[in-house]
């Protein structure tokens, strides 16, 4: 399946990547699986593993790491928000 992955804030900066579309192995089910899959793609992805209190959104709604993802989803990873 194909998903769009976005990164924001300090994580975006450390990865040097704002968005990417990736094809995932069929056995990936959750947001956490996607995170783990990405962090195993090489040293360039270490920032994703190292971000403290990593947060995620699926289809532009805050999501927990155990949420199931499906083909066509837009998944975002980011540090805790600091607006206001």
């Amino acid at each position: 399946m194909n998903v769009k992955v976005l990164f924001f804030g300090g994580l975006r900066e450390r990865l040097g990547l704002a968005s990417t579309t990736i094809t995932l192995p069929a056995n990936l089910l959750t947001v956490a699986d996607l995170r783990d899959h990405l962090t195993m793609q090489g040293a360039g992805w270490m920032a994703l593993a190292q971000t403290k209190n990593l947060r995620a959104a699926v289809n532009q709604k805050m999501a927990t790491m155990d949420l199931t993802i499906v083909d066509g989803d837009e998944i975002a990873f980011f540090p805790p928000v600091t607006g206001g």
Binding site: G9, G10, M62, F78, T82, G83, G84
Partner: peptide
């Protein structure tokens, strides 16, 4: 709620 749920990041 805005402080914890709205996706803004300050630099």
């Amino acid at each position: 709620y805005l402080k914890t749920r709205a996706p803004f990041w300050k630099k």
